[in-house]
Every structure is written in C-alpha cells, then in structure tokens.
Design a protein around this nucleic acid. Structure first.
Lengths: 157, 157
DNA sequence: TGACATTACATAGATATCTATATATCTAAC
DNA sequence: GTTAGATATATAGATATCTATGTAATGTCA
C-alpha cells in the first residue's frame, strides 16, 4: 500500500492553498454583507459604476468603465443599461468620435449614490472598529503587505 | 470651504479598506487563472462539485452540496443538472426519503476530474514555488493567520 | 483615396447566481 | 389518522458574467 496523495491530488494541506481558500470565502462573505446595505433595486455592479462616476466626477465611455472594473465590454453595456432604465445615468454622444457613448451621472443617480454611502457608514464603523474584546485583532498593515505581494505573484501566472 | 471628506464619503485611505479591495482583486484574478486550466466545457462551479464528490467519496444530496458551497439550492440544482447532461454524475433515489436525490459520480465524471487535477499540477507547482528571485516572497503562514482572524471578524457582521 | 485593421458598442446565447414560489414528502402534534 | 409545519427539489424570472459575432466609425498605410 502506497501512501495516498493528500486529498486526492490537490495540495490542500499547504498554507498557500488554505490562504487562497480563505480569500475566496472572505470575498464571498464580504459581498453578501455589502449587499445587505444596498437597496433591493441596486446591485453591487450597478453601485460600483455609480460610485466610480461620482468619486471621479468623470465622464467615461462604456469601454473605459469596463476596463476599470476588469469586466468585458458587453457586461458593462448591460450594467449601464440597467442604470439607464432607472434614470441614474444618461449617455451623451462624443462629438469627437461617433462610436463612443459617454456615461454621465444624473441628479437622481448622484442622490441615490449619496444615500447609499450614508447608509454604509455604520458598516464601515463596525468593520474598522475594534470589534469584540475577546476576538483576535486583525493586523491590517501586515495583512495588506502580504496581500500586495500575493497579488503581484498571482498576476504573473 | 470645508475640507472635503476623503473620496466622497468612503474610507478608501484605511488599510482595512485597501486590504478588502486587494482581496476582491486577488479572488477575481485567481478565478481567471484557474479557469484557464479547466476544459472549455467545464466551469468552476461544476468542477467544484465534481471535485468534492471525488475527494469525499461521498453520496450527497443536492441540498447538502449547496450548503457545502454556500449557494442556494436552485443554484446547485442547476449545476448538478449540467453535470447530469454531460454524464459526469447520476442521481439515485434515496430509499429512506423520496424527496431526496443522491448525487453520485460516474466513471466518466471521475475520469474527467482526474484529468483536470493532473492538468492543475503545473499551476500549483508554479504558485507555491519560490517564483521570481527579485519579487518579494509571500509569508504564507503570516498571511493565513491574518486571513483567519479577518474571516471570523467578517462573519460577525 | 481606397483597402485593411482597429476600436466602440450592441446582440445572441450560454452559465452561475439570486429570490419567490410551487409541489411532493416527511414529521410531529393533536 | 388528519392536519400543520418543515424539508427537498423544481420552476420562473431576474442580474452579472462570459465568448462569439455583427455593425458602424475611426485610423493607417500604400
């Protein structure tokens, strides 16, 4: 009898593997928590676009926004379409390039975004706050350092 | 003129905030890399189920698998349905409970899973290997410690 | 200027995901 | 035993995502 390969071929006992599993779970749970703070007619994808347009005070095309969020262009066409339906953005023709559509926040969109950000305040307070006394505190600085190294390693794959 | 709130209301300058952004990006990039190692007719969701059934050598119901992956039951019904269409799993009636369907790996499914795991070997080697000389090495142990603390903090939200 | 490549956007079709709901079965309480 | 609640699955309809492809406009180059 040969010694069995750990977990049928996958290196699940390595810290690197475990860390990636934790990252997947944290990302998933964080998204679920975040979505609890969004109104039911607003998705993360839609809020992300709204928030970007508000933060940058920018006029961006669909493709530019798609690249910023690292999604395919048809994905962003769809998301911008939902925001158009809700009246949160409008599109204007680019006078210099008739292929482009420039996406602009409307007053209604700006207002909706502002209200959501307001509503997020308690979440961020609780999240960055000290939390439970008995729980071990996250060392954010150390965590961030390792994550930045990990990201550059993963991006080389 | 009052001093503007940083980034229009969001604490984007905090390490905690930056770490969460890194985690989202790492999870996303890791998924993209992983999918490059899957055959075109196989998704992550489908491989996950195949892999779980193979690793655990288990006979699980759709709801049990859904809970394990933390997805809704109709989501797993759909994913299992795709695997059924491909002949990688079959379902058998539970003699003790006529509501349940037990999902079982087929030979074809076991073979497909094995080939994918084989193909993943170079990815894991490169990933857990030392990587570039000039790049800063990830301290997996330290990273994992912080991630575990972070996960328990997030799960309390 | 005309041909070809590139770019921007839209459409089509697929999968994964969700919530809400319907159906069937089991369990428990009366 | 019959009824009420819980559980397992399926179906419907929605959004986000992808790839492949089509169309229109722009850019390049000979």
């Amino acid at each position: 009898m040969s010694r069995p390969v750990s977990n049928a071929g996958l290196p699940t006992d390595l810290d690197a593997f475990k860390a990636m599993v934790e990252i997947e779970m944290i990302a998933k749970t964080a998204n679920q928590v975040f979505e609890r703070f969004l109104p039911s007619n607003m998705t993360r994808a839609q809020f992300g676009v709204l928030n970007r347009l508000a933060r940058l005070e920018a006029r961006e095309t669909i493709s530019e926004i798609a690249r910023a969020f690292q999604v395919a262009q048809p994905t962003m066409s769809s998301t911008v379409g939902r925001l158009l339906d809700k009246g949160f953005v409008k599109t204007v023709a680019d006078p210099n390039d008739a292929r482009r559509k420039i996406v602009v926040l409307t007053q209604s969109g700006s207002k909706a975004r502002g209200e959501i950000v307001e509503g997020l305040t308690p979440l961020f307070s609780e999240f960055t706050g000290s939390g439970d006394k008995e729980a071990q505190q996250v060392d954010w600085s150390s965590l961030l350092d390792e994550l930045v190294k990990l990201r550059s390693q993963i991006e080389r794959l």
